[in-house]
Design a protein around this nucleic acid. Structure first.
Lengths: 207, 207
DNA sequence: AATAAATTTAAACAAACGTTTAATTTAAAC
DNA sequence: GTTTAAATTAAACGTTTGTTTAAATTTATT
C-alpha cells in the first residue's frame, strides 16, 4: 500500500515538475491544478495546503530514493571498481531525480519555509556509510591513501553533477551541447567518468 | 562614476540579501522597501520594476566580480602553487559573493524569467582561460598529465563549494559546525585545501 | 434501490501582490 | 527669492494569490 492514491500522485508529479521549473513561490495552485487536470480545490482537499503538498512531495521522493547503493558495496569486485560503480549509480540516481534535488537545494538553503529535512539528512548519512565502507576496504587493501576526508567525498560527486546541471545554459554554450541527446550523452560518457577519475585520483594520491 | 547612485545601491543590497534568503518570487517589493528603508514606489521609480531590479543587481555584482584571477597567473611561482592560489582566490570570491551566486544558480536553472546571462557566461569563460593557461604551463613543465578536460575543472571547484554551502544544514549536523565561526573556519582550513588537493591529484594523476 | 460517504465542481473569500497616481517635500539652478 | 527639477510620500489601482464554501456528482455500502 502506498501512502498516496493515484490522484494524489498525479498532483505530486505535476507539482514536482512545476516547482523545479518555476520554483515553489513561482508556481500557483492554479498552475498545478491545470497541469494535473484537476480542480483547484482538490489540492486543499487532498493535501490541506500548497505547503503541505510540498511536504508530501518530499516524503514521496525521499522515501523512494533509499536502498540503491547497498547492492554495489556487496558485490565481489575490487574497492576501486566498487567506487566507480557507486559513483555511476549515485550520479544516475541524482540525474533521474534531478527535479526533486533542484527543489531540495533551494529549500535547504532558503529561510522561507520550515520543512522537515530529517529524512533527507538521514538518507545522506546512510549513503555516506556505504562510501565509508568502500574507502576503508580500499585503504586496508592498500589501494587508497590513509589521509582521506570521507565526509567531503559526496560533496565533490554531487556538487560537480549538480553544478553542471544548474549551469546547463553555460555548458550548452561552452561545450556545444545543442541537443538534449548530446547533453545526456555528455553526462554519461564524459562527466560521470570524469567524476570517477577525480575521486580515484584523490583517493590514490599520496601526500 | 558608478552606474547607480547611493540610494539605488542601498535598494540593490537589500534586495540581494532577500532574494538569496527567500528567493525572487518569495520576496515582495514591500519587503525590499522595508529592508532598504525606502517607500515602495521608489523601486519602480529607480528601476522600473521588480524584475528590472533583479537585472540591475546582476549587472552590479557581475561587473564587480571581474579581474581577480589575472594577478595570480602572472606571479613568478610554479604552476602547482599558482593553481592552489587560484583555487583559494576563486573559492574566496564565490564565498564573499555567495548571495548573488545563490540567486544566479536559481535563475540559471529556472524557466520563469528571461534574464540576460551573457555577461555572467562571458565572465566564466574568461576565468576558464586563466585556468587553462596554468594547466598548460603545468603540462609543459611536466607537472601535469596531458589528459585533462579543462572545461570541467571549474565544475569541481565551484560545484564542491556551492554544494557544501547549499547543504549547510546537513553539514552543520554532520560535522558539528554549530557556530558561524566553526563553519567559516571549516571552509578556510578544510574545504578549500580539500578542493586544492583534489584538483592537484586529478591534474597529476596518470592514466 | 436507498443511503451514506467520498469526490469533484464553480464561485466566492479576504489578503497580498506589483505597479501607478497625484500630491508633497526637498534640492538645484538661475 | 523664484523657478525648475528630482525625490519622496500615502493612497489607490486592478490582478493574482491560497483557501474555503456549499452544492452537485460519483462511488461504495447496506
Amino acid at each position: 500500500m502506498s501512502l498516496f492514491n493515484e490522484k494524489q500522485i498525479e498532483i505530486i508529479i505535476a507539482a514536482e515538475r512545476l516547482f523545479a521549473e518555476e520554483g515553489f513561490d513561482g508556481t500557483s495552485v492554479r498552475d498545478i491544478a491545470k497541469a494535473a487536470n484537476v480542480n483547484i480545490a482538490m489540492i486543499s482537499y487532498y493535501f490541506g495546503s500548497k505547503e503541505k503538498l510540498l511536504e508530501a512531495l518530499l516524503l514521496y521522493r525521499v522515501s523512494s530514493m533509499k536502498l540503491t547503493l547497498e547492492s554495489v558495496s556487496q558485490e565481489n569486485i575490487s574497492p576501486v571498481e566498487k567506487m566507480n560503480k557507486l559513483i555511476y549509480t549515485y550520479v544516475n540516481r541524482i540525474h533521474s531525480n534531478r527535479c526533486i534535488y533542484q527543489i531540495l537545494h533551494f529549500e535547504l538553503s532558503n529561510k522561507k519555509r520550515e520543512l522537515n529535512f530529517k529524512e533527507f539528512i538521514q538518507l545522506k548519512k546512510e549513503n555516506l556509510k556505504f562510501i565509508e565502507a568502500i574507502v576503508k576496504e580500499g585503504q586496508e587493501k592498500g589501494f587508497y591513501s590513509n589521509d582521506i576526508n570521507i565526509a567531503l567525498l559526496p560533496t565533490i560527486i554531487i556538487g560537480s553533477y549538480i553544478h553542471f546541471h544548474m549551469n546547463k545554459v553555460y555548458y550548452i554554450d561552452l561545450l556545444l551541447l545543442d541537443t538534449e541527446e548530446k547533453y545526456e550523452k555528455y553526462i554519461q560518457e564524459t562527466l560521470t567518468p570524469y567524476i570517477q577519475k577525480t575521486i580515484n585520483a584523490l583517493l590514490t594520491h599520496e601526500k
